[in-house]
């Protein structure tokens, strides 16, 4: 008996396209107005595209049974869990913890996605990233987010030095610097 041969990646890809096609197609069909060919409603073009997508998905599935493919290979489970978590944590905490601590957490979580990262190194790295972000984005570009948020108790927040006067002083140095010489061409 001939064993069943198929390309798993292609099969799954085809199925994925069919599922997407069905989601968009059924939503267009049931929820949206088709209109006429002359005056197309919001559902006309999406339904057309969904049909094409399902057709392509079926074709990909059909082709996948003709040949054997390579195995899917390693999946970065640890990377996925931590890397994808990092922006979410940033989003959840940026208002409460404030910009600086939130960037610190985000970088720290992302650090552990690699098996090679050591805890102390990760802490130092995250701290550096947070300090740099504070300096460049918050003080430098002036992004309007609180640097230390309300979730951090006041006594601890007060320990963080207020750098605004220092930054203003540095900016003042640049402002009073002589303007660059005019171009030599004189145009």
């Amino acid at each position: 008996m001939k064993s069943l041969k198929f390309d798993l990646t292609d099969l799954l890809a085809g199925l994925m396209f069919i599922v997407f096609g069905l989601i968009f197609g059924l939503t267009s069909w049931f929820d949206l107005d088709m209109g006429t060919a002359r005056r197309m409603g919001p559902g006309y073009f999406p339904l057309l595209l969904s049909g094409v997508l399902i057709l392509l998905g079926l074709l990909i599935v059909a082709v996948s049974t003709r040949h054997e493919g390579e195995p899917i290979g390693a999946v970065a489970w640890r990377g996925m869990a931590l890397i994808l978590l990092a922006p979410v944590v940033f989003g959840v905490t940026v208002r409460g913890l404030g910009f600086g601590p939130s960037v610190f957490l985000c970088a720290l979580i992302a650090s552990f996605a690699s098996v090679k990262m050591k805890p102390v190194k990760a802490l130092i790295l995250a701290l550096c990233v947070a300090l740099f972000s504070m300096a460049a984005f918050s003080y430098g570009l002036g992004l309007p987010y609180p640097r230390i948020g309300p979730w951090i108790p006041e006594p601890i927040a007060n320990l963080v030095p207020n750098l605004s006067p220092a930054i203003a002083w540095v900016k003042g140095l640049f402002a009073s610097a002589p303007p660059p010489p005019p171009p030599a061409t004189g145009g």
Partner: peptide, 9 residues
């Protein structure tokens, strides 16, 4: 981690 932090920001 640096890239992820900056992307998020």
């Amino acid at each position: 981690p640096i890239i992820m932090a900056f992307c998020s920001v």
